[in-house]
Simulated scan of single mutants.
Amino acid sequence: MRVFRGKFRSAVGAIALATAAAAGPVAAPAAAATPAPIQIYGAWHCSDDACTWATVRDMADFDQKNHWLIDRGDGRPSVNLVVLSFVNPLTLLNGTTNSGNSNGVPIGMNSAVVNYFTSHGIRVMLSLGGITYTDDWNTALAQNPTLLGQKAAALASQLGVGIEIDYEQSSSPNVTGLQAFINAYRAAHPYDASGADPTARLTIDVAAGDRWLITLDQYATANWLTTSNPVLDYANAMVPSKQPSAATAESNWQEHLDGKSNYNPAIPPLAPAKFTGGLYIAEGSQVHPECTNFSSSLQNSTGSWLQNAAPNGAGTSTGLLGYMFWAAERPSTRGVTTAPPNSCEGGVGAGATAYSIPTPMPALRQS
């Protein structure tokens, strides 16, 4: 049984890597004169079947379980981005049709679900991968990464969505293959700084800090996430193995800002305008304050830090792009769901009001 299909981080792996290349002291970001407005405020979405999206949803039922995403209680959305998670990259490459997929795409990820969100000004992306599909990423990248990129681009065009790369290979990831995938995708959908073309939005997930997914993090930061020659729009610093404290979350994110000069090869600093920070809203049997109680939430207690985080070697503007929440509806087979009575108007939704989250998402800061 799949108990958890999502962005689960191996604490053991992180500790081992930290021991191999110990981090220096964490520097607090300098205060900015004016906090940067939060531009991205989104949720990964797992449907009601632990992220398989293997059934076509009844849209009345879907609305009942997910209405909080499009209405925080006053008719305005709680988020400005939803990332449908996950598409299996190997299934997409092979164009597999079976009980849960049609031509390589989960049958629940259809135009009805996409339109449910986009009709309320919420941007939609599809996440390609997830930790369950790491081996399938490896196989697909070894088999034909260019064709995979072309198929991902065609899927984006078909549904009018962007694509998120969630490749969680911690040991010797195939960055050459991933470069070919990105080249093929960008040949169809060039980088669009304006953000006007939803299919041009191509992002990547990295670890909560710099001490896991090290090779991928180093390559992505150096080659795809620069402000001078951006290839990917931004990265998501994912959730760690469990909900962090405010101090730990900020410390993790600071690692991306600082980079790791003591690694070989070094991880360069990442511009604040090139990543978001991830938090849990539902985790195992718990519904967190991040879902239900903004005043007690991490998006509240870390908000000042996130909006004032200063560049430390990359970029010129202060403030991370925003927050991503893991995960809407049912991210694990035995876990809680964010459907009523656990819907997230009081946490995520109240935060959208507190931070004046723009819907639709504006053009993102580029520096």
Score class of each variant (00 low, 15 high):
R2N: 14
R2A: 13
R2K: 13
R5N: 14
G6P: 07
F8C: 11
A16P: 02
A16V: 11
T19Q: 14
T19F: 08
A21V: 13
A27W: 01
P29L: 04
A30G: 15
T34P: 08
A36H: 01
A36V: 06
Q39M: 15
A43M: 15
A43G: 11
W44H: 15
H45A: 08
D48C: 12
A50C: 06
W53E: 02
A54V: 09
T55I: 07
N66E: 14
N66G: 05
W68V: 07
L69E: 01
P77N: 04
S78K: 03
V79N: 02
V79Y: 06
V83C: 06
F86Q: 02
V87L: 13
N88H: 05
T91L: 15
L92H: 07
T96Q: 00
N101A: 13
P106M: 07
P106W: 04
I107A: 13
V114S: 00
Y116K: 09
F117R: 03
R123H: 09
S127K: 03
S127E: 02
W137A: 11
A140C: 12
N144G: 09
P145N: 12
L147D: 13
L148H: 07
K151W: 05
K151A: 08
K151P: 00
A152Y: 00
L155Q: 03
A156Y: 05
S157R: 01
G160Q: 08
V161F: 00
E164M: 10
I165V: 12
E168S: 10
E168T: 12
N174K: 07
Q179Y: 04
F181V: 04
I182T: 04
N183D: 15
Y185N: 08
R186P: 11
P190N: 08
P190D: 12
Y191V: 08
D192T: 09
P198V: 11
T203V: 12
L216F: 10
A220T: 00
A222K: 08
W224Y: 02
T226N: 11
T226F: 02
S228C: 15
S228M: 14
N229V: 12
P230Q: 01
V231Q: 05
D233T: 13
M238H: 11
P240C: 01
P240G: 02
P244Q: 13
P244N: 09
A246I: 08
E250V: 02
Q254T: 15
E255G: 14
H256V: 08
K260P: 03
S261C: 01
P268A: 14
A271L: 10
K274N: 00
K274G: 11
F275G: 06
G284T: 01
P289Q: 11
E290G: 00
T292W: 02
S295V: 09
S295N: 15
S301P: 09
G303K: 03
A309N: 12
P311T: 07
G313V: 02
G313R: 15
A314I: 05
A314R: 00
L321C: 06
Y323H: 09
F325K: 07
A328Y: 01
P331Q: 03
G335H: 03
N342P: 06
S343L: 04
C344F: 03
G346S: 06
V348T: 07
G351F: 07
A352E: 08
A354W: 05
Y355A: 00
P360K: 02
M361C: 04
P362K: 09
A363Q: 01
Q366W: 10
Q366I: 13
S367W: 14
